[in-house]
Structure formats: C-alpha cells, structure tokens
Design a binder for these strands. Sequence first.
DNA 1: AGAGGTTACGGGCAGCGTAAGGATC
DNA 2: GATCCTTACGCTGCCCGTAACCTCT
Lengths: 287, 287
Amino acid sequence: MTLDQIRTFLAVTRLGGVRRAATHLNISQPAVSNRLLALEDSLGVILFDRDRGGVDLTQEGIKLLPYAEILMQTVDQIRTEVVPSDNLSAILRIGVIETIAESWLAEFLPKFYRLYPNVTVEVTVDISVNLREQLMDRSLDLALLMGPLSDYKVENHNLPAFDVGWFKKKGTPDPDLATTAVITFHKQSRPFQEIQSFMTEKLGSGVRLFPTSSLSTGFEMVASGVGVGAFPRRNILEERMKDRVEIFDAGWTPSPINITASYLRENKHGLVTRAVDCFLEIAGSAS
Amino acid sequence: MTLDQIRTFLAVTRLGGVRRAATHLNISQPAVSNRLLALEDSLGVILFDRDRGGVDLTQEGIKLLPYAEILMQTVDQIRTEVVPSDNLSAILRIGVIETIAESWLAEFLPKFYRLYPNVTVEVTVDISVNLREQLMDRSLDLALLMGPLSDYKVENHNLPAFDVGWFKKKGTPDPDLATTAVITFHKQSRPFQEIQSFMTEKLGSGVRLFPTSSLSTGFEMVASGVGVGAFPRRNILEERMKDRVEIFDAGWTPSPINITASYLRENKHGLVTRAVDCFLEIAGSAS
DNA sequence: AGAGGTTACGGGCAGCGTAAGGATC
DNA sequence: GATCCTTACGCTGCCCGTAACCTCT
C-alpha cells in the first residue's frame, strides 16, 4: 500500500471512473488501472466491480473509503501545517464570477503569492452555475460565486455581499424601466431571475431584458445608450466607467449579491481553507 | 512523501537513532538515512538535528510527529479492519513469562493461527522485567507478564490472576518454612519480593530463598526434596508433576500473580489488540 | 463502433546495499 | 578510537507510458 495508490483509489471513487481519475491525476489511464490492481493485491481484496462497464465500489471498497479519506486528509494537513508556506508547491484552481475577478481578485493574488510563492494559482472566470459544476467534478478547488451551494459535500463561507445599483448613460435623464432595455447578469444568475420576475410582475410582459455574461460588455452597452444596467456597485468597473455612466434611483433595486467561497468538504484540511482565509481578510478590510 | 518515509521517520524518533531504526525495519542503515533525507526534501523542512552525534527532533519534526502517528495508525487500521484476516501477513512478536507459556499459550497459538494463518507469531519466554524492556524498545509487540506496567505509553489489559500455592515433595510431612529452603520465582519478580519481605519479617533473617528463572527447574528441585516451592497453581506443570509433588498449607500464601497483556499505545489499532482479544477469550473460558 | 477498462512490453529512475567518508564524544 | 550518520556508486526492480486487446452498451 502506498499513498499514491490511496490517492488514486480516492480519485477513482470520487470521479467515478479510471479514465477521469487519470485525467485528474495527470497520468496515463493504464497507470491508474495498475495502481488499483496493485492496491487490491497488497490488501488481498477486490475493491471494484468491473462487470458492467465502469467501476463500482465493492463492500470491501466501501470499508476502505473512510480510512483512505483520513489518510489523504492527514497528508493535506501535513502539507499546510508542517511544510512552511514559502516552499509549499502546489496548484490551486480557483473559479470566480466576473464581479469577483474585478474586485478582490486583484488584491488576493499578490497577497496569496507572497504567502505561498510556490503555489500556482489557476483562475477561471465563469458564471456561477458553471463554477458550481466545475467544483463538483473537481476541476476547481475553490469557487467564489453567488452562493451558497446547497450540497452536503460543499462547505460555504459567506463573504460580504455586493449591492446592486442601476446604471445609465451619463448625462441622460432618468429612464423609465418599463420602456428601456435592461442589461444585467447572465440568464442563469439569481439577480437576473429576480429582476425578471419583478419586472414582469410590476411592468407587464413587455420588458426588454438583455442578459450578458460579461460585466464589461454590459457597462459598455449602458455607456453607449443601449439601455440601463443593473450591476454590482463598488466595482472597479464602476470606477473606470464613471465618466460615461452614472447611478440612478429606479425606485427599486434587486437584493444584494450574496457571495460565498465554496469548496468540497474533502479539501477542508488543505490549502483551500488558507485561500478562503485570505479572501475573508481582503473582503473584510475592503468593506 | 511516502508511507515508507513516514514509517521510517516514526521508527527513528521512537527508537532514538538511525541505526536502531534500520535494525527494526530490516533495511540497511544508509537506506534509513536516505529516507529521512528524502522526506525532509519533500517537505522542505529539516526534521532532525544531527549536530551532537545521534539525531534529535527539531521543532518542525515535533510538528510532524502527531500527523505521522495518525498516518501509521490509519494504515494499521486498514490492515486489521479492511484486509480479511486470512490473508493478512505480518509478524507478531509476543513475549510471555513462563507461567503463561505453560498455560494459555498452547491454546492461543493454534486459535490465533486459525484466524490469521499468514501471521507469523514469534514467542519469547523471559522474566517480566526483561519482557518489559523488550516491549519498551520495540523488540516485542505484546507482552504477557506480571503487570501492570505503569508507563503512559503502555496499555494494560488484565487477565485472570494465578493463585500461588506451596508445593512440597510428595509424601513428606508439612515442613516449617523457617527451616526449609524456599524455591520460587526470579529475584526481580514481585512474588519473590513479597515472599522475601514476609519471611524475613515473620521468620527472621535465617530463611533460605532460592530464586529460579525456570519453573520446571523449580518443580524439579521441590520434587527432589531440596525445599518447598511457591509456584502458580492451575499450571500444566502442577498436573505433570502431581505424582512427585503436592500442595500443602503453610498458613500464608503470597498474593495471586496478576497477569496483564501489555502493549504500546502506538499499536492500539493494529493486530496486537486482536491477539489480546484472543488471549482474553481463552483465559476467560479457562478460568 | 465507441466508451471503458486490462494486458503486454520496453525504458527510465527511484531506492536498495556495499563501501568509504566525515563528525562528535 | 568508537560510535553514529552521511556520501558515493553500481545495480535491481518498480512503475510509467505507448500500444494492443478485451468487453459491455
């Protein structure tokens, strides 16, 4: 039994397949297969049913699972608590929504890099639903998104919310929402749905809502007079665009955007929580 | 970081030296040294001070220690709880005092072997003080001796006590302890000391006490009329010798011999506890 | 046929043991 | 000088990746 075998065993069970585990571990697929066979051999136990295409844990495999988790958890703890932060080398894959990418991320990266100069941070910017999916299939270690994620496997940490404000082209009169195009977040986002239901209820079905998955595009559209926008305030974009757009009061604003730092419980004792702490500090002092 | 490295790290810290660890692990001494260096390299941390001849844990090494223990403990648990007992292969080194060797051991060995056919049991018979020492320096995994051992590292399980009886040569009249040679356990044993202090107190300093580290020799001596003996009853020897020796009442008998199954806490989750369970069953049903 | 997993095989490298080389008491 | 640990070095064997093979849907 080796730690590599245990790590591989866990990857295969969590990702549900040899092939996927191989991708995740950056090794060839036969290598994964061999590690499993070697582990089974060293324990003298069959861990997987391979009958019906794919792999299913046997009873023995299920027995091994909790111990395997303890082992890898302990290894993670050693990496974060014994190894000095400045020579811990690892890859940390963080996914953020655009709002975060343009606010805390700029402060986070150098701060985190000072603490862990040998950790490579890979940042993915995407909408919350996609981040959630990537988190669940382990393509991400940590996601900062519109949360919380309700899944027993996920641990959520609340970060300060973002207020949403109405933006219009600078110098134009206050528009009427009922007759103006409204540009806002992506269709699958909570704010979009909140705005949509509010507006169809209050203003009838004639409203024109333009979702965009890019905040900067959204601001651009507002600045060029396509319509008004409902976007987070306290954003770098707000600062950058303040010559071309301005806030106005539309009588109603969507609820603030709740941000959570979310990660899988299985990573609770690893580097991920350090990154969360770092975000919490930044967000706390910035608010 | 590998499990071999962690195991080696623990052996070195527990046994207090590279050389001793090498012996314990059945590998060459440079191999141990290399594993330590490799571990230090992979963690990016110096674990040992090598300055003043020998090795001392550094602050970092002390930090690693509890995690290393969790790792090896978990590995032990996997070996006992996931691996089916009939293909667990291991070596279990048991030390017993002669009294045990001649009573429960005969029943223990085949029973344990049926449960764990691939475990090699190495039995050492010695007096309690030596067994204690061998347990502490890890030459034994389990010791059945006159316990308990009061050491925070040791876990003791009580087994049924052995009553002590006075034996004399068959057919001779009841002797007077004050004028007869008394043959009993080894000098460093608790019964010897109890008898010695009782007899010098009650009968003056003229008593003749003959300690022996061999029960059968002791019985032999009694049978040939050298003196009387204070030995455990319910012993195979008692049965075997019943034509030549017999019990008599000397008006006082030493306290029963307390037997404990003792092992190091660090092995609590391994095979050792299974062996203890097995002994407990045997001793329980035999009494 | 395609997706999933295992077997076969050659090559590189990690890790062992033997032997020699410092340190420290 | 004795004891203890590290460095040097040749060698074995494990484990990886490529490629071919099997087996269910």
